[in-house]
Amino acid sequence: MGPNDATHTTTAPRIDELEALAREGRWHVINTVTASKAGHVGGPLSAMDLLVALYFAQLRVDPENPQDPGRDRFILSKGHNAIGLYSVLAMRGFFPIDELATFDHGDSRLQGHPDMRLTPGVDASTGSLGQGLSAGAGMALGAKRLGSDNHVWVMLGDGEMEEGMVWETVLSAPRYRLDNLTAIIDLNGLQQYGWPANDDDRFDRSEPLGHVDLAAVFAGFGWHVLEIDGHDFAEILNAFSTVTEARDRDGRPSVILATTSKGRGISFTEGTYAWHNGIATPEQLAQARLDLKQEQA
């Protein structure tokens, strides 16, 4: 790892520990959004296993020193999924879990979209979809120029992949040999308005990029491509190891295409676009607690 080993997680957690953390993180998502009466649900739940694996088993970060120059960088390009990131940052110790109760309040450090000026552990302000990968490429290029071994990770949504700015970076990153850049695509297959199209639709509501072979496209642009089950921690961790070990071999950036389920882990949210966002009823919240095996406080 080089001179920055001290910022890495010192003891690799077991898969059952990661699974328990993911259930807790999903509980924080649904409970916080319900209490704040604002926020997104489906996307944070689909990405939770990936986020937990990153922050508890991969990223070189130090919650006691969030601005450590030796840290890895993470950008949540799909910034409307902020409550998922905040939940993991809180569990990792960047700020108290109790602070999640302030989510999306006017004077909170935890706004509806990530703000790097406010929130410890946030490396880029996001929310306007499509911009995160470009910012990540800039960070990766900067690290190269400085001779740093930082790794930059960017998470995007599959609906977000329809933004043209993403593809400008997909084209340019291999040119600059950014093997320290990894994109993770949360392929949950559902945009906000769902699919398939109805006869009276005025526009195409089909599955995001459902007609595109993303693996072939990224490979054609010169990226190292891995396809995984985004809810299988063994596959996730293996993918992380593969892309980090591939650095300095051929100069290719990497992309992890992670197939996930929107609303994962909660019986009434999983697999439906209707829970892109939403506020749970008391009865639904009780059901979520059971689904996620969270004891009453």
Rank of each mutant, 00 (worst) to 15 (best):
T34K: 05
A183C: 12
A219R: 14
L285W: 02
G230E: 05
L76A: 00
W275F: 11
A216K: 14
T259G: 10
L85Q: 00
W275E: 03
A135V: 15
S241Q: 12
G106D: 10
M48R: 01
D107S: 10
F233R: 12
I83C: 04
G93L: 09
T119Q: 08
P44S: 05
S128H: 04
T11S: 09
P253D: 07
D248Y: 09
V212I: 12
P63W: 01
Q287F: 13
N31F: 03
F203L: 11
Y55A: 04
L45Q: 04
D232R: 04
L76H: 09
G70I: 08
E99Y: 13
M1K: 14
G194Q: 02
H105F: 07
G159V: 00
G263T: 10
K293S: 15
L171D: 09
I75M: 08
T281W: 13
E270F: 07
G39R: 06
A239E: 07
S128E: 13
W195A: 15
Y86D: 02
L129T: 02
T242K: 06
L100S: 03
A137Y: 03
G93A: 07
V33W: 10
S125C: 03
W153E: 03
D16W: 02
H211M: 13
G2Y: 14
H8V: 07
F218E: 01
